[in-house]
């Protein structure tokens, strides 16, 4: 039983990381209607940026959160403005190709600049696991979970309480009607893309306490994020948090009870099943077809 509770806690903490990454992905899809295949590379860049800020500028991991988030906001904003906006009305396949192309480019640029080596960010913050009633909890993971949830909460408040946020919601419900109401769609798209990337920025900084960074680190995470986001219903923030928790727990339990090598198989199988049976996700309203 103890081991089960420990696994459950591990799963939720892992889910915390997935949640922060997936919220950004789902926001971008909800507003811009693009599945951002370069999302994992945003994470990779965020982690390298944190690594540089910690080693070169002497900040600690949590102090680098804000600058990294700003950097990624700029990256996302620019990507939408420069690459995706010109092809917004093209065949949807072109948008997939574009984000895949950006992903491929960024990954290889990182390989060029940093090499294939795995680098760990030196951690100046206390990383000793807490022991609590026989359970062991890593403070870094708790921090990631908190950052993810607070980020999602802030995003929710922004979306529901501010004019610009409501404009984004309006666009996600009906593009043309929103445009008729005088919302600047182009700016809103870029803003949504930037915010989605900034969410990744916040989480990527905290993730450097748990994971080393290497050029393809994003591919691993992004696939899980796709699963999470589809599970929760693309475009739904609450859904993606729920999806992240489910996948975190499945990951943790399947890793123990099935096999470490097959845990991904378990949730990819869930993913394919969800796509086949209920493409709108467990909590989504839109059709995935």
């Amino acid at each position: 039983m103890d081991i089960f509770i420990q696994l459950l806690i591990n799963g939720i903490l892992l889910g915390g990381a997935y949640a922060g990454l997936s919220v950004g992905l789902t926001l971008i899809f909800g507003v811009v209607r693009i599945v951002n295949f370069a999302h994992g590379e945003f994470l990779m860049i965020g982690m390298y940026a944190t690594y540089l800020l910690v080693t070169q500028a002497g900040l600690n991991v949590y102090q680098s959160m804000l600058p990294v988030a700003l950097l990624l906001f700029a990256l996302g904003f620019g990507m939408q403005k420069l690459i995706l906006q010109p092809i917004m009305n093209a065949d949807p396949h072109m948008q997939i190709f574009a984000t895949v192309g950006v992903s491929f480019t960024l990954m290889n640029v990182a390989l060029l600049v940093f090499g294939a080596n795995v680098v760990s960010t030196p951690n100046s913050v206390n990383a000793e696991p807490w022991s609590l009633a026989g359970l062991s909890i890593l403070p870094g993971q708790v921090a990631t979970l908190c950052v993810s949830l607070l980020g999602a909460l802030a995003l929710r408040i922004f979306l529901h309480r501010t004019f610009m946020g409501r404009a984004l919601l309006a666009i996600s419900q009906n593009r043309s009607a929103a445009a008729l109401m005088g919302i600047n769609i182009r700016f809103a798209y870029a803003l949504a893309f930037g915010l989605g990337a900034a969410c990744v920025g916040l989480v990527s900084a905290t993730l450097t306490t748990q994971y080393p960074v290497f050029p393809t680190v994003g591919s691993y995470f992004v696939l899980v994020c796709f699963v999470v986001v589809v599970l929760g219903g693309l475009g739904s923030i609450a859904g993606s948090i729920a999806g992240a928790m489910i996948i975190g727990i499945v990951d943790s339990l399947a890793g123990f009870y099935v096999s470490t090598g097959l845990k991904e198989v378990v949730y990819f199988a869930i993913f394919i099943l969800i796509l086949a049976i209920r493409p709108a996700g467990l909590f989504g309203k839109d059709k995935g077809v």
């Binding site: 693009i34 599945v35 295949f37 949807p92 396949h93 997939i96 696939l223 796709f226 699963v227 589809v230 090598g261 097959l262 991904e264 198989v265 990819f268 199988a269 993913f271 394919i272 099943l273 796509l275 086949a276 493409p279 995935g288 077809v289």
Partner: peptide, 25 residues
């Protein structure tokens, strides 16, 4: 069979997932 109904990015995602499953197996 499971992916016939899917379009655009959803089909792409499913195809990646299938690739991953087979690679891991």
């Amino acid at each position: 069979w499971p992916t016939l109904r899917l379009r655009g990015p959803f089909f792409a995602l499913a195809s990646i997932a299938i690739l991953e499953v087979i690679r891991l197996l």
